[in-house]
Design a protein around this nucleic acid. Structure first.
Lengths: 146, 146
DNA sequence: CTAATTCCTACTTGATCAGTAGTGTTTGCA
DNA sequence: TGCAAACACTACTGATCAAGTAGGAATTAG
């Protein structure tokens, strides 16, 4: 019952991009080093984020990635769903109702739906912008990063 | 990001036991047939529930399982944690703080904690007794099951 | 032209899930 | 007393997925 490493790395990377939002693109390798993420793995994460329309890629020398939207308009849910697919707490959940063998007579289904919804609420109510603010504080003076 | 089938089966089985709470033990095979769960797999689920102190087992002919406590005193969280271990939404979560490589400077950690907490809240606030009530309604007259 | 960078596909290794299987142990009942 | 029904334990298997690695192609700044 846990998210995969992709979400974790994706959120960290998005925070990193948010911190330098407005500047030029940041390379995956740079972020990987700074956040201790396997570089080639992070590359793949970024490809997913690009395909989801969250970041843009600039290829070639001095290229890298940058956020497509204001960090305050990107939620953790955006990142997580881009990397994990739609959130669902149990097999017997999902929009298609009766996925478990209980054929519509499953009294447990509402619990799984509520669980999924609770997760969505948490993730949807936290923006990358907020987290970036916290990150700057944790890292010390933002000037260190400029 | 989903629970395993064990939780799903475990909750269904607990509901089933709750519906006939007060009567004698119910065999795993009977529940397996009624809820369309692989019988030998359900057996294992029950062993875990017994070890967690949620059900008691009565061995031998006419044996089976019964709930140890009143269904209203058993939450979905009890079942889920008995079967999946402690809930945690991400690697970088857990009581031990800094499991991710960010060494205490991880701005994302609070989100994962909040997510875990939200899940716990949902599961802890739903009792097997409630679900059993819903199940009886779904199945039709409770007399059908006596 | 070259070095840096993203992009795409495939592969590998290990873990985990879902279920099956065999065998042992306990117990109600005829 | 014996048998059948039930739980108990351990081990195994096939499939899937997670996490990361690898190789090379395309793009671009300088």
């Amino acid at each position: 019952m846990r998210l995969t490493a992709k979400s974790e790395y994706g959120v960290l990377a998005a925070i990193d991009l948010a911190v330098s939002f407005g500047g030029g693109p940041v390379s995956a390798r740079e972020i990987a080093e700074r956040r201790r993420i396997p570089p080639r793995f992070l590359e793949q994460v970024f490809v997913s984020l690009r395909r989801a329309g969250i970041v843009s890629a600039q290829r070639g020398a001095r290229g890298g990635f940058s956020l497509n939207r204001d960090p305050d308009d990107i939620t953790v849910l955006d990142i997580v769903e881009a990397l994990e697919g739609p959130l669902s707490a149990s097999v017997c959940d999902s929009e298609r109702g009766e996925v478990c063998g209980q054929a519509g007579a499953c009294a447990a289904a509402p619990v799984w739906s509520k669980a999924t919804q609770a997760l969505r609420d948490v993730f949807a109510s936290t923006t990358i912008g907020e987290l970036a603010g916290a990150q700057v504080v944790l890292d010390g003076s933002p000037a260190d990063r400029a």
